[in-house]
Design a protein around this nucleic acid. Structure first.
Length: 258
DNA sequence: CAGATTGTTCTCAT
DNA sequence: TATGAGAACAATCT
């Protein structure tokens, strides 16, 4: 589920719930979500410190403490929720941070495909983000277009490749391609200058309107609002949408518009 | 029961 | 060397 807009929503949850508060307790309920750090070390590193803020890069969230940095990745089913300590934990609450006197930040994840990392210093943070391209909301037009020119794979797999541009997932890529009227099977280095320009413009526009919602909104005027309907039709021209697999993911597009 | 799922990473083949 | 297909990871849902 989580793509850039979702993670941006989790960043807002983090800020309103935990920013500025002392980490009183770290309760690792399922150590299976921890990567390269033990439950004991995580507790020891964080308890007593204060969450000072959070940054997002692509689908990564970095929670700062003034000391070690907590890296969160939400995989396909992860999310962050704010709760009261008294509220019963959900079955998939894997790590619970009690922050301040009466709040809890909960990392919840049904499928545990990703999880939490502890970066002890800035060079460890850099290693976490080593394979990430520029953030999709921060990248400028020149860098974006140059990255597309440098790739030969299909544009669908290029857009979802986090090392090219970070933050776009399967739904966003299909949405952006549909809005830019580019067929997902087009090879990246075969795009015209005009294609690249429309892709950049539509990427920004799609992200900007999805971020406040905290998800890729399944609006009626969006491709995303139709892709999972029984008989999906293009909201622009009414054509029956095509569905295939590219790079292992379901890809939806309109053969008439794109 | 088979097949699917909005993510990432690895291996193997082309 | 660069891509792509497929698998693996885990836990569901249809």
């Amino acid at each position: 589920m989580p793509e850039l807009p979702d993670v941006e929503g989790f960043r807002r949850v983090f800020v309103s719930c935990a920013k500025g508060r002392v980490i009183r307790q770290v309760d690792v309920r399922d150590a299976g979500v921890l990567h390269g750090v033990s439950a004991r070390r995580l507790r020891e590193a964080l308890e007593g410190r204060r969450f000072t803020g959070a940054e997002r890069h692509g689908k990564w969230l970095l929670a700062r403490t003034g000391g070690p940095t907590l890296g969160l990745h939400f995989g396909m089913t992860g999310l962050l929720v704010c709760a009261r300590p008294g509220e019963e934990a959900a079955p998939h609450d894997r790590v619970v941070f009690t922050v301040g006197a009466d709040r809890q930040l909960r990392y919840r994840d049904q499928r545990k495909l990703q999880g939490l990392w502890l970066a002890e210093d800035e060079s460890a943070v850099e290693r976490l983000l080593a394979h990430q391209g520029p953030d999709a909301l921060a990248v400028d037009r020149e860098r974006f277009e140059a990255a597309l020119c440098a790739r030969r794979g299909t544009i669908k797999t290029v857009l979802t490749n986090q090392s090219v541009v970070a933050g776009l997932g399967n739904l966003l890529a299909d949405e952006i391609l549909w809005r830019a009227r580019v067929r997902p099977s087009t090879h990246s280095n075969d795009l015209t200058e005009a294609d690249r320009r429309r892709l950049y413009t539509q990427m920004r526009r799609t992200l900007r309107s999805a971020v406040p919602t905290g998800r890729v909104p399944p609006r009626d005027s969006w491709l995303t609002g139709h892709r999972d309907t029984p008989s999906p039709h293009c909201p622009r021209c009414g054509e029956l949408l095509r569905r295939s697999r590219m790079g292992g993911r379901t890809t939806v597009w309109c053969a008439k518009c794109q």
